[in-house]
Amino acid sequence: MRRAAVALMALALLGPLRAEPLPEPAVVEQPRAFGYQLGDRVHQRVRLDTPERAFVPGELPPPERANVWFERQALVIEQDPDGRRWLRADYQLVNSPPRLRIVNLPGWVIPSADGGPGLQVPDWPVSAAPLGRETAFSESGLGELRPDRLPAVPDIAPLAARRNHTLLALAAMLAAWAGWWAWRQRRERDTLPFAHAAAALRHIAPDDPAAWQALHRAFDAAAGRVIDAATVPALFERRPELRPLSAQIEQFYAASAARFFAGREVADAPSPHALCQALRQRERTARG
């Protein structure tokens, strides 16, 4: 709450010209004039732009004790919604009168940057009162001194709750990740022939005929028809992504034919496991 008071001072007499121009009266928004106590902050606003003049303040004084009662803490230039500039002065009551009395918010002159007349801010009397009596009553709170201050005890519970929630969220995220991964693996096994074969091959030794047969079934499934050495091109037509492995695939079919139909083992037969992994990789890359 601030009551605006406009102090207007008419220059009644124009004295003879002096080297130092006389300060002009300022339009000041004064603070409430009553009911202050030790430690209270008081704000005063001085209008800088007047219809006659756009006042540019010169060097402003640093924060300092303005008088025995008040300390001036900040001087800030601000703009109101109408675009007018104000100099806001923040004071703090740093002294306590022994009884209720009138104390002055000290008047001062705002210097002008261009050497022109400064702005005169008048004294502003306000009422201030002590917080207590000179003699302390008792220890009931109006004692000799307020007690020492301990470090703030942080509230453990909400911190613990937050950490637990985050850990829970992290666990959920990891579970979702694992779940998604498992679901994806499973779907691949169901829909991607070589993923399916790879899963089956995990339990089959490489020299077991079942391993070869499993890979044959994967080729058949991938091509949508039975593939043999002569029809491998049909596989590539349907699955062009496997074409880079054509050498290994043909080698596999040759070795498989030798093994299953000619009854001889091929010495450097390709491992169905290795080939299956390579095929699976291509199949996955092609599917995204």
Binding site: P209, W212, Q213, H216, R217, D220, R225, V226, D228, S256, F260, F261
Partner: peptide, 9 residues
């Protein structure tokens, strides 16, 4: 039949 009957099985 040729497309579906798989070998070696």
């Amino acid at each position: 039949i040729l497309d579906r009957v798989a070998t070696p099985r």
